[in-house]
Computed example of a mutant assay.
Amino acid sequence: MISVFLLDDCAFSREGIQKYLACLEEVRLAAVCENEAQGLAHFSGERLPGPAVLLWRYDLERAVAPVEWMKTRQPQDGFSQVVYRAPDDEGMATEMLAAGMAGYVVKGEPLERIREVLVTVARGETWVSPMLAPRLVTYVQRQTLDLLALTEGERRVVPLLAEGLKNPVIAARLSLAEQSVKNTLCALRKKLDVWGRTELVEKARELDALIKLTNYTGGG
């Protein structure tokens, strides 16, 4: 039996999914929450037999961006997180999966996909909407080629650059001379074919998400 905590602040959407979940033999609806605070109060401290899933709406009203929200609000061990009504976007999916999201349901998917994703993540596997999955594979492969072109030193800089840190801070973190960091960034710009600092940081975030996703899925 899969215990599900539903978190959705849209009454129409919440009621529709609640009715659907109530019809599934594999699912026990542990709680239905209308807002973030209510949801956190319900699943913190819960001890449930079997797999448990926090199923939450992507465009839920909250104080921070979706990826940061899930990172800082991880439920206790034994829970998986599934997001639904998520954007059909390869970059966002990669970032959320890298952060630990177990299921990514794109907005527009039929309601029946909810059962499929719940059963899959309950087995400890990852689920991505079929409409996005082929493009996600291509996206990851393309990013992987960029990643493989980097030296070990460049890979060490990427996560710090992804945080938006300035050169002196990166140098201090890695115990390098600031000029060495500047040289590394220059090499990264050439390899990744980006020239502005903003573009470079965005590319670094994509590569950093790929590194984390590879580690998360056991691919590296």
Rank of each mutant, 00 (worst) to 15 (best):
R85M: 12
L40C: 04
A102K: 03
Q38S: 13
E26W: 05
W56P: 00
A171V: 04
A209M: 02
R57A: 12
R115E: 15
V106R: 01
K190T: 15
F43T: 01
M96I: 01
E112G: 12
P134V: 12
L132Y: 05
M92G: 00
K19I: 02
V53T: 07
Q18G: 04
L29P: 05
M1L: 10
T94S: 14
W127H: 09
T198D: 15
G16D: 09
V140A: 05
W127Y: 13
G108T: 07
Y139H: 11
V4S: 03
G124M: 05
D9E: 05
P51V: 04
L60R: 02
Q179V: 15
E15H: 13
M96G: 00
A98G: 15
R115H: 15
L29T: 07
V117M: 02
S3E: 09
A86K: 03
V106A: 00
A187K: 13
S180R: 08
R123K: 15
S44K: 09
P110G: 07
R189S: 11
V158T: 14
V67E: 11
L147E: 11
L160P: 07
V83L: 11
E68Q: 12
G220C: 02
G196A: 04
E61P: 01
A11F: 13
D208W: 15
P130Q: 11
V140G: 00
A162S: 08
R197A: 10
V64E: 14
W127E: 08
P168I: 11
W69C: 03
L7Q: 08
A63M: 02
C10V: 14
R156Y: 09
V105R: 01
E112Y: 12
S44C: 08
V128S: 03
G78P: 06
V4F: 13
T72F: 04
G45E: 06
L161K: 01
N215W: 03
P134N: 13
D77R: 12
C23T: 12
I170V: 12
F79P: 07
R155G: 11
D8F: 08
D208A: 15
L111I: 15
V4C: 06
L192E: 06
D146K: 11
S180F: 03
E116A: 11
E36Q: 03
K107V: 06
Y20C: 11
T184K: 04
E178N: 10
V83C: 09
C33K: 10
